[in-house]
Design a protein around this nucleic acid. Structure first.
Lengths: 241, 241
DNA sequence: CGATGGTTTGAGGCTATTCAAACCCAGTGG
DNA sequence: CCACTGGGTTTGAATAGCCTCAAACCATCG
C-alpha cells in the first residue's frame, strides 16, 4: 500500500531498481493521523515533507477577519511541498479532512534523493507542475464561473484525481468534504453551496452521502462545468494495475 | 541591463563566477517584443523558456464562452515556466501587456544549467515556490475578499513586485494594466472595477494615469487590503545596488 | 478627422450573502 | 434506552454586491 508514491511517479518517468528502492526507503515509517489534525501550520519552519498515504488533507489560509480559504485538496499519493523547506516559513497550513496515514520525510532525505536520482527528481518536477496547473485552473474556476458550474467543476476534478473514473464502475467515491469546505474552497457561502448542490441533484448529475459523492452523470456534469481535463495533464491515465 | 536575472536570483543564493558567467551566457541574445504579442499559446509544445527583461506580460486562459481569466502578471526578471518543457502541451497562453525585451532560452540550455550549477538550480526552485505562493494568495484574494480590498491587494502586490517601494520616492510606477485587465485578473467586470478604483481614488489611496499607478498612501492601501507581504517571501527586500 | 481603445456613468436585475432558525443524524452519557 | 450534544444540512426572507446592457465620453493615433 505504501508504494503509492512510486506508482504515481512511475506515470512520468521510467525508474530503475535503485530509484524504486530509494523511494521505498522514504516511505518506510508511516504515521496514523486523525481528522482535523494539522500536518503543519502557517508560520512554522518546514523541516519535513509530507506524503499522504491514506485520507484527504486540505491546504488553507486564514484571513485577519477569520475567513478561511482552502487553496488545495491533497489525496493519497500527493506530496506536500516537495521543496518548501527552501523557504523560511510556511505561508499556509495543512490539516487532515479525514483520518488517514502519512509519512514525514526529513528535508535532507528529500534533497538527497533529488540529487542522486535524476529520474525521480524529474518526476517530482512533473508533480509540482501539475499542482501549479491545478492552482491556475482553480483561479479560473473561482474567477470566471458561476456557482453551479463552479461546483460541478470541482466535483469533476476530484472525481478524476481520486482515480475513481476507471476504478469503481458505479461512480461512487470517497469524498470527505462538508458543504462548508466546498464553500471555503470555491469562494461561496455554505448556504449557497447547499442550494446549488441540490440543484445539481435535481438535475440528476450527482448525489451525495456522508463522505461520499455519487456520480450519476459524469458527462452531464462535465458539460455543466465546461470541464476540460487537459490541465491535469497525464493524471487521468490510470493504466490500472 | 540584462543581468537582471542574476541580480534577482542573487537574493536567494551565493553565486560564484562560473554561475554568474553561465547565467550571463543565457541572456546574451535579447529580442524586442510589442504590446499584445504572444510569447506562447495554449496548446503549443513548449521548447523554450522565456525571461522577461523589459515590459510586463500576462499569463491567461480562455474559457469556451469567451471569458478570459488572467492567472499571473510577469515583470522584468521573471522567468516563464522554468520547467514547463517537461509537460507536453501548454495549458495557458502568455502575451505581452507592453512593449519590451525578452530572452528565449532553449530547454536544453536550461536543463544544462540546472544540472551543472546547483546553486542556480536552488535559486530557480525558490522562484517557482514564490510563484506558487503568489498563485495561492490570488486564490485567497479572489475567493475571500470583496472588490474594494481585492483591487487594493493587487495594487499592493504589484507595487512591491515592481520593486517600486524603495526605488522611487514618490510612489509613481509603471503599471500597464487596463481596468479590463484588472477585472479579468480579479474576477470582476471592468464596469465594477472602474467604480471601485474611483472609490480608492476618492479615499485618497491611489491615483492613476495611462500605464502608471500613483501610490498616495501605501499604508492606507495595505490596511484596506489586509495586505501581508509574507507570501512574497524574500522578494520585498530589494537591498538596492 | 474618423477610428480605436479605454474610461466613465446610469438604471435595472440577478447572484450570492447575511442572519436566523429548524432539522437531521450519529455519538455520548446518564 | 432516551435525552442531550454537536456538526452538518436545509430552508426562508431580506439585502448587498456585482453584473448586464447601453451609451457617452475622452485621448491617442494614423
Amino acid at each position: 500500500m505504501s508504494d503509492i508514491l512510486t506508482r504515481k511517479l512511475r506515470r512520468w518517468a521510467k525508474f530503475d531498481d535503485q530509484d524504486r528502492a530509494a523511494l521505498d526507503r522514504l516511505t518506510m515509517v508511516t504515521r496514523p493521523v486523525v481528522r482535523g489534525q494539522h500536518l503543519i501550520r502557517e508560520g512554522d519552519d518546514p523541516t519535513h515533507v509530507f506524503l499522504i498515504l491514506e485520507g484527504w488533507a486540505q491546504r488553507y489560509k486564514i484571513l485577519p477577519d477569520g475567513k478561511r480559504q482552502i487553496v488545495a485538496f491533497l489525496m493519497p499519493g500527493d506530496l506536500c511541498d516537495t521543496h518548501v523547506f527552501i523557504l523560511e516559513k510556511m505561508d499556509h497550513s495543512i490539516s487532515m479532512m479525514s483520518e488517514g496515514q502519512v509519512v514525514s520525510i526529513p528535508a535532507n532525505d528529500m534533497l538527497a534523493i533529488i540529487e542522486n536520482h535524476p529520474r525521480v527528481a524529474q518526476a517530482l518536477w512533473w508533480c509540482t507542475l501539475v499542482d501549479e496547473g491545478i492552482l491556475r485552473e482553480w483561479l479560473v474556476n473561482i474567477g470566471a464561473r458561476e456557482a453551479y458550474s463552479r461546483i460541478a467543476h470541482l466535483f469533476c476534478e476530484l472525481y478524476i484525481r481520486a482515480g475513481a473514473v476507471a476504478r469503481e464502475g458505479n461512480g461512487d467515491f470517497f469524498m470527505p468534504l462538508t458543504q462548508t469546505d466546498v464553500g471555503e474552497a470555491l469562494g461561496l457561502t455554505s448556504v449557497h453551496v447547499n442550494r446549488t448542490i441540490r440543484a445539481l441533484k435535481r438535475s440528476g448529475l450527482v448525489d451525495a452521502a456522508k463522505n461520499r459523492l455519487l456520480m450519476l452523470d459524469f458527462e452531464g456534469l462535465k458539460d455543466a462545468a465546461r470541464f476540460d481535463s487537459a490541465y491535469l495533464h497525464a493524471r487521468l491515465v490510470p493504466l490500472g494495475g
